[in-house]
Amino acid sequence: MKKIIAILVVLILVLTPGLALADIAVGDVIVSLGENLTDSQKQAILEEFNAPEDALQITTSNQEEHKYLGGVIPAAQIGSRALSSVMVTYTQKGSGIKVSTNNINYITEQTYTNSLITAGINDADIQITAPFEVSGTAALTGIMKAYEVSTGEAIDEDVKKVANEEMVTSAELGEEIGDENATDIINEIKKQIAEQNPQTTEDVKNIVINVVNNFNINLSQEQIDKLVSLFDKMKDLNINWNQVANQIENLSGKATEFLSSDEGASFLSGVRDFFSGLANWIRSLF
Rank of each mutant, 00 (worst) to 15 (best):
L56G: 04
I58D: 08
D225L: 06
S84P: 04
A279T: 06
N206A: 14
K190E: 04
H66K: 07
T16K: 07
E249H: 13
E195G: 06
T101D: 05
N214H: 07
V149G: 03
S100N: 08
G277D: 02
Y147C: 01
T129K: 09
I4N: 14
K190F: 07
D54C: 07
A245P: 01
A22L: 09
T201L: 13
N187M: 11
T118S: 09
E257D: 11
F132S: 13
Y90P: 02
R81A: 12
E188H: 05
T200G: 10
Q110A: 06
T256L: 10
S61K: 02
L140G: 00
A44Y: 10
G70A: 12
F231H: 11
A163D: 00
D225A: 11
V159S: 01
L259N: 13
G94L: 14
M234Q: 12
N164M: 08
I30M: 02
W281H: 11
Y90H: 07
Q92A: 04
G277N: 06
D39K: 15
T141V: 09
I45P: 00
F132G: 11
E53G: 06
A76W: 11
K3I: 03
L219D: 03
I104H: 02
W241P: 03
N102Y: 04
L140W: 00
S260R: 14
N250I: 14
K233S: 15
E263K: 07
T59S: 12
V26C: 11
G18N: 08
K98M: 08
N214F: 05
I5R: 05
N181T: 10
E48I: 12
Q199I: 15
A44P: 04
M234E: 12
S95Q: 13
L33I: 11
N216P: 03
V159D: 01
A139Y: 00
E263R: 10
V88R: 02
Q63S: 09
K145Y: 02
L19I: 12
Q43N: 08
N164C: 08
V149S: 07
N122Q: 11
L8A: 14
V14H: 13
F132E: 14
A76E: 14
E195T: 03
A171D: 05
N213V: 15
E109S: 15
K191E: 06
S170K: 11
V72A: 08
L227M: 10
E53Y: 14
M144S: 03
A6L: 14
S80E: 06
N122V: 03
